[in-house]
């Protein structure tokens, strides 16, 4: 038991690693700050394209989202980060992470938002259009707000997934939270820094998880 605490909950090691992890957390938040808005806007475009009158656009976006939902994000990230340089395109890890996660999360946000928009009956469109609102204004001011409310639980839980996703940026040497923790682990031969990183993720995400599951049950009943 002592060995267990020594290995996983070593306060001394945690204290030493703490400043490093805080810097890592800063990077994690920076990635989130870039990727969440990018993914949301991308998802909005995906949802619009899926509702477009052009069959070509609808089908090609559908195929793209299905591909990105089938591809593990880590594969996508490594493809962008280690694959592209072979063609002479060299990207910073941050750019690679943004591109890969943008593609991945646009597909997911897109699916959620599409379901939301489809949940709004044609009556809302007709009512708004009959008052002279343009199609764009109808979408932005009438349909989208209701759609977002209808799929709020899914949006929250999808955002949690994006935050968790940033941890795999460590694989391409982004000095975010998990990377810093793993570095500290390999120096100290002690898993406590990674446990501490886990605790930081918990502090960050537990409230969101609670919120998501409360929203889910409210809508469910």
């Amino acid at each position: 038991m002592d060995a267990f605490i020594e290995q996983f909950f070593n306060l001394g090691v945690m204290a030493k690693a703490f400043p490093l992890l805080m810097r890592g957390l800063g990077m994690t938040l920076l990635i989130c700050l870039a990727v969440i808005p990018l993914g949301f806007v991308g998802g909005l475009l995906v949802a619009l394209a899926r509702l477009s009158r052009s069959a070509m656009l609808r089908i090609s976006v559908r195929i793209l989202t299905d591909l990105f939902r089938a591809l593990p994000p880590l594969v996508l990230l490594i493809l962008v980060y280690s694959g592209l340089p072979f063609t002479g395109i060299r990207l910073s890890p941050f750019t690679a992470v943004c591109i890969a996660f943008f593609l991945n999360s646009s597909a997911y946000y897109g699916e959620v938002l599409r379901a939301g928009v489809e949940s709004i009956g044609s009556g809302q469109w007709e009512a708004a259009r009959s008052t002279g609102l343009s199609g764009r204004d109808t979408f932005l001011f009438v349909v989208l707000p209701q759609a977002v409310r209808n799929v709020l639980p899914d949006l929250v839980s999808n955002t949690i997934e994006v935050v968790k996703l940033t941890s795999i940026a460590s694989v391409v040497s982004m000095t975010e939270l998990l990377y810093s923790a793993d570095m500290a682990r390999s120096i100290t031969f002690n898993a406590s820094p990674v446990v501490l990183a886990g605790l930081i993720y918990l502090v960050l995400l537990w409230p969101a998880v609670r919120l998501a599951s409360r929203l889910e049950h409210r809508v469910g009943t």
Binding site: K164, L165, S167, I168, L178, G198, Y201, L202
Partner: peptide, 11 residues
């Protein structure tokens, strides 16, 4: 739900 799987894998 809150922990990234990679964190658990490494631990």
């Amino acid at each position: 739900r809150a922990l990234p799987p990679l964190v658990m894998v490494l631990i």
